[in-house]
Design a protein around this nucleic acid. Structure first.
Length: 425
RNA sequence: GGAGAGGUGUCCGAGUGGUCGAAGGAGGCGGUCUUGAAAACCGUUGUGGGGCAACUCACCGGGGGUUCGAAUCCCUCCCUCUCCGCCA
């Protein structure tokens, strides 16, 4: 959510920035509403002050034996007026809030305008592996090596699910261990959150109400049942840890990470091209999250993308890092980097990590503030998130990039202590 | 699932219709004292909104109602805790 005062004071700049990701921006109406809102407050406050004053006098006058029935009559009317003004005010507040909730975040200065086609590859690490034999894709490899059971995954969960088994499960688990170990080294606190969340969490994270259809909601048995949903990413949980809290300046930055499966409907996004583990309704992900001082979030984003990158680098995989154009970022994010890993069979780079700076967008929605050491007004914190990493595309990359002529696959060195072998055959 | 208790400021905790934004205590901050520290004492210490400002309004779980006036009364929703049952 954006700050109405910022829109009021820097209408031009905000408009220009938002046009990088929106077709049209018009603040005339909302600013007029804001004006109206202020006028109503002034008027309502004036009447309330009067009422408070008279109500204070009533008991005193009564004690003196004076007749207060006239005053009481008058205050009845004042009370009605106040009620009327306040109900108009709350209507206007709802309208303003509704408008602001619909706006995406203000992209940072260096974020290119427009959609995907304007994404900028800022660095490419490693080389595309070249093979002197006929390569297989990860589905063939995983099936032949009995790492993934696609058929039985579908048997259990339906279309869009797979099942790790045996060495495949061990590999998956090894990846998660590797990530966890690295994050602990860097001083991030390990959180295992609930996987079922209340709607407020989706709102704070910026996913609700707009993207509510993309997640799985538990069916409410009756109206009293809580409307829980399955988290689409641990970010939804971690971004709510400090909801409605006021942190101290020296508690920041707060650094967390979680491992959770991520549950997504992915409705209508099925492409045969993305068969296998590229896109499913459930995948494993380790997520990094930070709460920082506003002035530190830029640096924190660089730190987080660097961390995520080191994980890919450690696995010896070829990848690239992109800066996303404004429309390709999630609505709540001011700036996003993606790490895209090379999938030979697709002849393409696929996202394995997305690192974003939300500035105070989520903090405003979740009312998450901090107090400076030397006093002053409480300010909103900045929040950032980065996958570190999603496994579902890492394993295919490991299989495809590490395959050998005989159909075996080299286990990356960093995973060997968990997998217990150098080659899977 | 059954029964009960309760939601007040950073925390504990009082307050059942009229200067209550809220006693008291703890904690924090500032100060006095001290070689230093502790103790003691004094002061200070919530959030949000409006106004150029003086100042003012709102907030005692959320929403609604009664009243000239609500933390206090009524309705409703939410949440937490305890005990019993069941159970990973």
């Amino acid at each position: 959510m954006l700050d109405i005062n910022l829109i009021k004071e820097q209408t031009e700049q905000v408009t220009r920035a938002l046009l990088k990701r929106m077709d049209a921006v018009n603040f005339t109406e909302v600013l007029a509403l804001d004006e109206k809102r202020r006028k109503l407050i002034v008027e309502s406050d004036r009447l309330k002050a009067k009422r408070n004053d008279v109500s204070g006098q009533v008991p005193r006058l009564k004690k003196e034996g004076k007749d207060v029935s006239g005053l009481i009559e008058e205050m009845k009317t004042v009370g009605e007026e106040i009620k009327e003004l306040d109900s108009r005010l709350s209507g206007i507040n709802d309208e303003i809030r509704g408008f602001l909730e619909g706006l995406p975040n203000i992209p940072e200065e260096d974020v290119p305008p427009g959609g995907k086609e304007n994404n900028v590859v800022i660095r490419t690490i490693g080389e595309k592996p070249s093979f002197d034999f006929k390569t297989r894709d990860h589905v063939e490899l995983a099936t032949a090596l009995q790492l993934i059971d696609y058929e039985r995954g579908v048997k259990l969960g339906g279309n869009g699910f797979w099942m790790y088994r045996g060495t495949g499960a061990i590999m998956e688990w090894a990846l998660l261990n590797y990530f966890v170990e690295e994050h602990l080294k860097d001083g991030y606190e390990f959180i295992l959150p609930p996987h079922l969340l209340i709607p407020q969490c989706g709102y704070t994270a910026g996913q609700f109400p707009k993207f509510s259809e993309d997640v799985y909601h538990l069916k409410a048995e009756d109206e009293k049942a809580v409307k829980l949903f399955l988290l689409p990413t641990a970010e939804t949980a971690l971004s709510n840890l400090h909801r409605d809290e006021i942190l101290k300046e020296d508690e920041l930055p707060k650094k967390y990470f979680s491992y959770t499966p991520c549950y997504r409907k992915e409705a209508g996004s099925y492409r045969t091209q993305e068969r296998g583990m590229i896109r499913g309704h459930q995948f494993n992900k380790v997520e990094l999250f930070q709460y920082t001082l506003p002035e530190d979030s830029g640096r924190a984003l660089e730190e987080m993308i660097d961390k995520a990158e080191r994980l890919v680098k450690g696995l010896g995989l070829h990848y690239q890092v992109s800066k996303l154009a404004a429309r390709d970022c999630s609505a709540g994010m001011a700036k996003t980097y993606d790490i895209e890993i090379w999938i030979p069979s697709m002849n393409d780079y696929k996202e394995v990590s997305s690192a974003s700076n939300a500035h105070d967008y989520q903090a405003r929605r979740g009312n998450m503030r901090f107090k400076r050491k030397n006093g002053g007004k409480n300010e909103f914190v900045h929040t950032l998130n980065a996958s570190g990493l999603a496994t579902s595309r890492v394993l295919p990359a490991i299989l495809e990039q590490g395959q050998q002529k005989d159909g075996s696959v080299v286990v990356p060195g960093v995973l060997q202590k968990w997998v217990g072998r150098e080659i899977i055959r």
